[in-house]
Nucleic acid binder design. Structure first.
Lengths: 193, 193
DNA sequence: GTCTATATCGGGATAGAC
DNA sequence: GTCTATCCCGATATAGAC
């Protein structure tokens, strides 16, 4: 049996994804949980506190190193591994529609509260840095060209981020083909014997 | 002297970009214009009506064909023209910070009102279709390879969309280099004598 | 077309009992 | 930890005069 605290977070997450932060009132959350508003306020001092807590949880769950493990990449499997790790990430986001919907709202919150914008930028920068490190590693292995590593990393990051967004928009692009081609363009220029 | 109607739209646009739709009250808009709230309601029946009108204006101003003109592309200038047209679009968005901030809010609105989401998808799809047509044209000219035209078009669209987003985030990527490399990857595989 | 004044509603948040 | 009842505020929106 989950604690009330956890139930609140879980239900809030669902309602926020469905209706947005602004249109989800404390009354709605309470009703969905079959508890009263003051009971909510016992666990969280404000609606913003719920939003904040969810945000911190989400941020912790996103990290480049959770999806791309540098030590597994070798000269011969580099392109193949980069492809499959990316496809795995794409697949996991295609399954969880709520994730992108919530994240987009935190982006919007960034206007009024710099904290959100900064934290999200950190995550994106983390991915760019992760790709840069990975490509550097690949270049050192001789698996990919060693020029323009940063620009290549930024492109991979953008493509992956876009794929995430477009999935959320409901586009029926062939994301796997796009990612495969993106990786192919990155590794292009090196022969593999 | 601009009409009150136009002044309302202009001022609303500015305030919405600065504070967001929800935190911009009708009272704020009225005050900024030195008119009263009821005067606002004379011109627009609701706050949503202002938001809607701005949205329609914005949508009309965005069209693939405004930036990329098919008839100007030839076999020899194809890559060069695709690059410069894209850079031009990127440059114009770097100058207008408000544009992306407003657009992101309309994206967020899409949750509760499908109309916004659908219209924005139409625009994005218009760009993808535009790139597809352009690349098809380029392939017919012999300027670029003729395989995977759709995937290539989707990638260009994603990169351009991402660049727009990242500019808004405040990232200091080298966007010109990214776009140039994206175009180079697209045209790769064809010799130009 | 614009004003003053006001109605009305829904939201977040709290007091105090159990 | 949870409840009932209530406060308070700010928002949209309107009535009716000028």
């Amino acid at each position: 049996m989950a604690s009330t605290y956890e139930n609140i977070l879980e239900t809030s997450y669902r309602l926020f994804a469905e209706h947005g932060f602004e249109k989800t009132s404390m009354a709605m959350i309470a009703k969905a949980l079959n508890i009263s508003k003051p009971a909510l306020y016992y666990h969280f001092e404000s609606k913003d506190a719920i939003i904040d807590t969810l945000f911190e949880e989400l941020c912790r769950s996103i990290a480049f190193s959770r999806f791309f493990k540098l030590q597994d990449y070798t000269r011969t499997n580099f392109a193949e591994k980069l492809t499959s790790d990316g496809l795995h990430l794409i697949g996991s986001q295609q399954e969880d529609a709520r994730y992108s919907q919530i994240m987009k709202q935190y982006q919007a919150l960034g206007y009024r509260n710099a904290k959100y914008a900064e934290r999200l930028l950190e995550i994106l920068e983390g991915f760019t840095a992760g790709f840069a490190e990975l490509l550097q590693h690949g270049a050192a292995l001789g698996a990919i060209p060693d020029d323009d590593v940063l620009v290549r990393a930024q492109m991979l990051n953008m493509i992956l981020d876009s794929i995430d967004n477009y999935i959320n928009y409901g586009f029926k692009y062939d994301y796997n083909a796009i990612w495969i081609k993106a990786v192919a363009d990155i590794v292009k220029g090196v022969d593999h014997a």
